[in-house]
């Protein structure tokens, strides 16, 4: 009798554990759907200057201290796998917002600054059909590394980089870190939560 019950007890506890784990960490679990991990973070934006796709110097801190919500990711121009998906996600997000796209600021920061010139960043945005409100920054290698470290995203080899979307509501202190690739509905959902 005990032997028969044991597997089902284990099964119930396993399910309960999985349910608890997924609720606490904010992981969306469903077959064929995206999985990502959501955490709240106290990132301090470093006092560095980056270069915009127009070749203009940008003070990152004041750029991010915007009265609009910010959504940022880390990409590089010749990235073959993760970055194209992050970028089509941003492009689609802008299209979905329609007229409201002006209410949010998207920014992609290069993790390959030696290769990613402002001109290449501009081409990258054009390739994905970026509208106004989505900027792409490059900059001095040491400044980029500082930014990556502050956002807990630094990897010594860019090929080891991971999919990350980081967002902050207007006037908020805390950053929302979403580790993993997001579906369009995930990104929209997280953005809506940011506005509340």
């Amino acid at each position: 009798m005990m032997k028969r019950k044991l597997p089902s007890i284990i099964g119930v506890w396993t399910l309960a554990f999985l349910f608890t784990f997924s609720s606490l960490s904010g992981v969306a679990l469903a077959e064929g759907k995206s999985m990502y991990k959501k955490t709240l973070e106290d990132y301090q934006v470093p006092d560095v200057k980056l270069i915009s796709q127009e070749g203009k110097e940008i003070e990152l801190k004041s750029y991010l201290n915007s009265d609009k919500p910010i959504i940022l990711d880390f990409i590089y121009g010749t990235c073959s796998t993760i970055c194209p998906v992050l970028s089509v996600s941003f492009a689609h997000f802008q299209r979905k917002l329609g007229k409201d796209k002006d209410e949010v600021r998207l920014v992609s920061i290069s993790i390959d600054p030696d290769n990613d010139t402002p001109e290449l960043m501009k081409e990258h945005l054009q390739k994905y059909g970026a509208a106004e409100g989505w900027d792409a920054f490059t900059g001095k290698r040491e400044n980029i590394i500082e930014v990556l470290k502050e956002f807990d995203s630094y990897v010594s080899n860019k090929m080891d980089h991971f999919p990350l979307t980081i967002m902050r509501g207007a006037g908020e202190e805390k950053w929302v870190r979403l580790y993993g690739l997001l579906s369009a509905s995930d990104l929209l959902k997280e953005y809506e939560m940011l506005k509340k």
Binding site: K33, S183, A184
Partner: peptide, 8 residues
Amino acid sequence: LVMGDIPF
């Protein structure tokens, strides 16, 4: 479609 619902 990538990620289930992102057209490109």
